[in-house]
Simulated assay, not measured.
Amino acid sequence: MRNKSDMDTLSDIFFDIYKKAQISGQIYQVEDFKSKNILFFNGEYSYIHIFQGSNFNVQCDELKMNEELNDGEVLVIPSRVKHSIEIIDNKKSDFSVITCIFQLQGAYGSMIAEGLPKYILVPINPIGKVAEWVPMTVAAIKLELGNPTLGSQVMISSIIDLLLVWSIRFWLSKATEMHKSWILALSNPSLSRAIFLMHTKPAQNWTVEVLAKETHQSKSKFSKNFNELVGTSPINYLKNWRMKLAVKYLTESNNTVSQVAELVGYSSQAAFTRAFVQTFGCSPKKFLEHSINK
């Protein structure tokens, strides 16, 4: 069980990255299953499904998911994957699935997506009670959909944002160390310090030795802890973050390749280009040309 201090540290760093991700959501559909028994989703978006009034089966081959969802439960699928929802009991009345979609784009959105599990299921509790925030979320969504007025889309986007944060908080409260993630690693004070430094000062010449010293650990202990909780080495994590920022700087600014290399911590354009090719399979210039011609 994580203590309050650990959770506060996790919350501060996570929120800083989350708000920069500029996540936006909207209602995709409200399906009452009167004309069909099954829905198919092609994986264009990240999804939040809210299940109302009946039992449903959700399947996704890519995630090896075959879950039965009940009235009041919520399913968040951050990854863009094909999946289906089939109603199990269509003899009940007044049942539906509210589907919201959201975008996880850019350097910060991509980091959020990588830190989350394949899916988050917010179930009813053992005595059949739904999470307290689900009914008021559904009520707010239905109110905006039923009486659209000035600012309704902004309200719905904010409600979906809250729904996503509540779901992530639920996952964080229940997650075990079996799941490797930079988000969960934030609850470790030493690792959260290292992750904070890499995210806020990507241009600095970070090495495992320097990061270990910053976190008051030996080099071997720091590397071991980082690998065990995050699922990759500190240097690979740093490279991944730098490459995400590099794409942001290349596509959203007028910086030259040489300037971007310096911004993300590479002492030479050649070293930066090698790392970029290893990550994306093409040079920064080719990547930029392709993004412009899209």
Rank of each mutant, 00 (worst) to 15 (best):
S46I: 03
Q26I: 09
F280I: 09
A185Q: 02
N254V: 00
K174T: 15
N55G: 00
K244H: 08
L104R: 07
K244D: 04
S218R: 10
K91R: 05
G265T: 04
S218Q: 11
P123Q: 03
T200V: 15
K239H: 06
T9L: 12
W206K: 07
A140T: 09
E73Q: 05
N147R: 06
Q29G: 07
Q269T: 11
K174V: 11
K34T: 14
K239A: 08
Q103F: 09
I112M: 12
V97S: 15
Q22C: 14
V97W: 15
M1S: 13
T207F: 12
S291Y: 04
F14P: 00
V260E: 00
P148S: 09
E252H: 04
I17A: 05
S167I: 14
F196E: 12
M111I: 14
V208S: 15
K142T: 05
G231N: 11
F272L: 07
L250H: 07
L197H: 11
H199V: 10
N37K: 14
V277W: 03
V81M: 06
L143C: 00
N236R: 04
T137V: 15
K239W: 00
K201P: 01
I168Q: 02
L39K: 00
K92P: 01
W133S: 09
F14N: 01
A270L: 12
N236W: 02
L10S: 06
G43I: 07
G128K: 04
A270H: 12
L10F: 05
E228A: 15
W133M: 05
P135N: 14
S223P: 02
Q153C: 02
L164Q: 05
M7L: 13
K221T: 10
Y266H: 05
H83D: 00
L75S: 09
V210R: 12
S268C: 03
K129G: 10
A261H: 03
Y47T: 00
H179C: 08
L163M: 13
I156K: 10
V138Q: 15
A275S: 11
I13L: 11
I159S: 08
I120E: 04
K92L: 13
P189L: 07
V130Q: 14
S54N: 00
A175V: 15
S283F: 04
S192Q: 00
A261E: 02
Q59T: 13
L162N: 15
T256C: 07
A194H: 02
D161M: 01
Q59I: 12
V260S: 03
R2N: 10
D94Q: 10
I27Y: 11
E144K: 06
H290T: 08
N55D: 08
S218V: 08
K201L: 13
I120Y: 06
W171M: 01
Q52V: 08
I159M: 09
N254L: 00
A194D: 05
S79L: 01
L75R: 13
K286Y: 08
K129R: 13
I235Q: 13
C60F: 00
R169F: 06
E262R: 06
S46F: 04
P126K: 05
E214P: 03
K129W: 02
F40E: 08
D12G: 05
N42E: 15
Q204W: 08
I159E: 02
G128L: 04
I120H: 07
